[in-house]
């Protein structure tokens, strides 16, 4: 099954796209690794990952149909 990842802010500059569909690698750590291989500029970027609108702090499994977001440091206001 595939999952969709959305890149926000400067991460979209670094990847050259605002979203991408990939095969679900199964976990957050695996996804992070796959993305850094696919987009080498991400390796040095600061970001957090949100699954279904919640930031994840640990290596969680990724459920099918999960909504994933890669987000750089916030700068609202």
């Amino acid at each position: 099954m595939s999952i969709e990842i959305i890149f926000f802010g400067q991460l979209a500059d670094k990847t050259g796209c605002s979203n991408v569909v990939v095969d679900n690698p199964g976990s957050i750590d695996a996804l992070s690794m796959v993305m850094k291989m696919q987009y080498p500029n991400l390796a040095t970027a600061k970001f957090v990952i949100a699954v279904n609108n919640k930031i994840v702090f640990d290596n969680e499994p990724i459920e099918e149909n999960a909504k994933l977001a890669f987000m750089p440091p916030f700068s609202g206001g």
Binding site: F74, S75, G76
Partner: peptide, 24 residues
């Protein structure tokens, strides 16, 4: 809390050409 916790990003647009991403 808005500045620290809401997923919002500001792109600072320069006069003429170019931009940089805002840092809170």
């Amino acid at each position: 809390r808005i500045k620290a916790e809401l997923p919002i990003w500001g792109k600072e647009i320069f006069e003429g050409d170019g931009y940089q991403w805002k840092v809170n």
